[in-house]
Write a protein that binds this DNA or RNA. Structure first.
Length: 428
RNA sequence: GUGGGCGUAGCUCAGUUGGUUAGAGCGCCAGGUUGUGGUCCUGGAGGUCGCGGGUUCGACCCCCGUCGCUCACCCCA
């Protein structure tokens, strides 16, 4: 025994094991399935990038870039950052490889931000998301938003809302910010303590401040949605029209201003009404028509969506959804072995080769103990292989889910086993 | 970075105004006769009471520090 304290997972991180990881598998598999249906392929990019990828991408002034990134130097003195979000790396890869467009990628990735952890917020969290690069067709906005919507519905969520807004393009947003800045300058002393000082640095931030005083001021402020240029207006109308055609209810929220600088035109956020904390956004995204150029590529538009896995799980709990889209994985078969020869391992190999999920117990436990394990495993069937069966070339097949205590078990000849299993395990 | 709450078995917690061998439920292990689960019964293993210091004849309990967890602000997923 050592007298040093045991190691623990770093602050704000957590291990996902056992029953919890089964839920993760379910969510990820479901998302992958939806992404494939919408024509996306999986993109895997490095967990760390040149720090500039993120600084230039999300904006040097953003909180994330300023104080939340995990930045480090490798032995070659290169400065890297652990990815704080999923979009910039995909865009960097898009520029580097110049694929044909539209380039549609989905991802599952950890994201790292140095923040104080709290409910639904971690230093390492995980996101599921999609990105589409290379076209500004508003139908893509509709597809991305509807993919998110259908995914949330698919995992069983009910109590959530979709908020949508347009941030305009570089030109009309800049024109609007002049208006807003001018307006705020006349009301600076009425803002909340925080924004009274810093409103000038990023006037848009004031719009989504939850403080009553800021809200009172901004209620009278000009809104970007009323100052879009014609092109942005037409684009946004097309997006909203498309969503309406799909029966997806998107509430216009002129105050919706997302944190990263790269957003333009369509922005959206999914809010859960089941989460009562401040961390109630279960997903969000938008268009980033300037980002590719920002990172050194040819002007090219893009749109994406991301959702936090931990927060989705929290939301499923809050809504009382136990089944997680029916993706719990239980064993098909648990093998009980009291012979202690090679026969059981050979049988396991055969069954697994056939595609069944099979487990067994180890360390020569009593049959009673093995049956308890079989029960806990959730397996549908127990196969018993003991001296009697071995001698007769049979196995005993016992149904573990037959509700009553009546023993529904049969002896099956080993030569017939696969055929019988196919029958028994086929229909659920 | 700032502030509140909490740290007792693997988990959820109890622990009387500080008093001697620290408890429960669940979980885990083993039994309940002759190879069989889910209910039930019996027994068992398992705790430096987060860590360090202080007060005291005596501290799980009081004080200080520290680390960790948690919740909130900020921002986001």
């Amino acid at each position: 025994m050592s007298d040093t304290p045991p190691f623990k997972a770093p602050i704000g991180t957590h291990d996902v094991l056992g029953a919890e990881s089964a839920r993760w598998e379910g969510l990820i598999a479901t998302f992958a399935n939806f992404a494939h249906r919408y024509g996306f392929h999986l993109a895997i990019t490095p967990m760390f990038e040149d720090v500039g990828v993120f600084k230039r991408g999300i904006g040097e002034e953003s909180d994330v870039a300023r104080k939340e990134m995990y930045v480090f130097q490798d032995r070659g003195e290169r400065t890297y950052a652990l990815r704080p979000e999923g979009t910039a790396p995909i865009v960097r890869a898009f520029i580097q490889h110049n694929p044909t467009t539209p380039f549609k990628a989905w991802y599952f990735t950890p994201a790292f931000r140095y923040e104080r952890p709290q409910a639904g917020r971690y230093r390492q969290h995980h996101q599921l998301g999609v990105e589409v690069l290379g076209t500004e067709d508003p139908m893509l906005d509709v597809e991305v938003v509807s993919l998110a919507q259908r995914f949330f519905e698919g995992i069983g969520l009910h109590r959530f809302r979709l908020l949508i807004n347009s941030m305009g393009d570089a030109q009309c947003r800049a024109d609007y910010v002049v208006l807003l800045r001018d307006f705020l300058a006349h009301h600076a002393d009425e803002l909340c303590d925080e924004h009274a000082k810093v409103w000038s640095e990023n006037p848009l931030r004031v719009l989504d401040c939850k403080n009553e005083r800021c809200i009172a001021v901004t209620n009278e402020a000009p809104m970007l949605i009323d100052h879009l240029c014609d092109a942005c207006r037409v684009h946004f109308d097309a997006v909203r029209g498309g969503l309406r055609a799909l029966g997806i209810d998107a509430t216009l929220e002129p105050r919706l201003v997302r944190g990263f600088d790269y957003y333009s035109r369509t922005t959206f956020e999914f809010i859960s009404d089941a989460l009562d904390g401040a961390q109630n956004a279960i997903g969000g995204g938008g268009r980033y028509d300037g980002l590719v150029e920002q990172l050194g590529g040819k002007p090219s538009s893009g749109i994406g969506f991301g959702s936090g896995v931990e927060r989705l799980l929290l939301t499923l709990d809050a809504e009382g959804i136990k089944d997680d889209a029916g993706l719990r994985r239980d064993l098909d078969i648990f093998l009980v072995d009291t012979v202690g020869t090679d026969a059981p391992v050979v049988l396991l190999d055969r069954l697994r080769h056939e595609g069944y999920s099979v487990d067994r117990s180890y360390d020569q436990r009593s049959m009673k103990a093995q049956m308890k394990l079989a029960d806990k495993s959730g397996a549908r069937l127990a196969l018993l292989l003991g001296p009697q069966e071995l001698a007769a070339g049979e196995v005993t097949m016992r149904d573990l889910r037959s509700g009553d205590f009546g023993a529904t078990q049969d002896r099956v000849a080993q030569v017939d086993l696969l055929a019988v299993l196919a029958q028994r395990l086929k229909v659920t």
